[in-house]
């Protein structure tokens, strides 16, 4: 594993088997329970290992002056198309690369490579078919990129509105895409994702004429109910309608870091 936690643990015990509280001076308490068990304090975050790796990634990105965006959404919301079109614009001003996660297939990577940006494909199959990209997976993927020749790295996460929100990968900003075919209620059903992101795209607005029931305002209100003040960009990756404000946000976020 990534860290040897033993010296970080306040684990203590004592050998008397009496049924009482018996804290040691200066040490974490060990409680002998009535059931004949001995309690050992651990007090550690289960995802410690990921958080340490994410911190190392963040330091590397700071040293190399690379702006990193973690792009997340449910499957089929238009992540790859959004990214294809976004890269086409960003690459006029920035050196860009992409890490793309997929449980299997290289279809997304093939589509993105057409932009001319270096693309590293991660099939999480090798990592146990995971539902998210963890920090160590990103660290591994970085070996496939020339970090000295890079301004913006975009990570296209696994299509999933639940798990990726839980895993810091060392990114600077997080964006989530919700498409209008998914329903206005999704932000309320997946609050952690919308809480953790810095911007939201309401995508596929070109389909609105065919979706009588979809209420754009309600969707945006639901997003802001979870994350007051978060920018919500109404976009169509297909027609690039609404792309201006999204690209402006991305460019200014990147410039903030790159100087």
């Amino acid at each position: 594993m990534l860290l040897d936690g033993i010296n970080r643990i306040k684990a203590l015990h004592h050998k008397d088997g009496h049924d009482h509280h018996h804290p040691h001076a200066g040490d974490a308490p060990v409680e002998t329970r009535a059931s004949g068990t001995r309690e050992i304090k651990v007090v550690r975050r289960v995802l410690d290992a990921n958080e340490i790796m994410a911190k190392a990634n963040r330091q590397l990105f700071a040293d190399q002056k690379i702006f990193v965006l973690n792009l997340m959404s449910s499957p089929g919301s238009g992540k790859t198309t959004t990214l294809e079109k976004t890269l086409r614009h960003l690459m006029q001003d920035f050196r860009c690369a992409v890490i793309v996660g997929d449980i299997c297939t290289t279809q997304d990577a093939d589509r993105l490579a057409a932009s001319g940006a270096p693309v590293v494909q991660i099939n999480t199959d090798e990592f146990g078919g995971d539902c998210h990209l963890a920090a160590h997976v990103i660290e591994k993927a970085l070996s496939g990129l020339d970090l000295d020749d890079l301004d913006i790295l975009i990570v296209e996460n696994i299509g999933n509105l639940v798990c990726p929100a839980e895993f810091d990968i060392g990114e600077d900003k997080r964006a989530v895409i919700l498409s209008v075919t998914e329903g206005e209620d999704k932000p309320l059903k997946y609050p952690l994702m919308f809480r953790e992101c810095d911007a939201a795209l309401l995508n596929k607005i070109d389909l609105l004429p065919y979706l009588e029931d979809f209420d754009v305002k309600l969707a945006a209100d639901n997003i802001r109910q979870i994350h007051p003040g978060m920018p919500v960009f109404e976009t169509s990756a297909k027609t690039e309608e609404g792309f201006g404000p999204w690209l402006d946000w991305l460019r200014s976020s990147a410039k903030e870091k790159l100087g």
Partner: peptide, 25 residues
């Protein structure tokens, strides 16, 4: 009604402690 809030708890995923069975019990 301000949206500027700090979450004090709710994101935990922590191991608090272990209880070991006493072998000589």
């Amino acid at each position: 009604e301000s949206g500027d809030i700090t979450l004090l708890s709710g994101r935990e995923l922590d191991i608090e402690s272990l209880e070991l069975a006493e072998e000589d019990a």
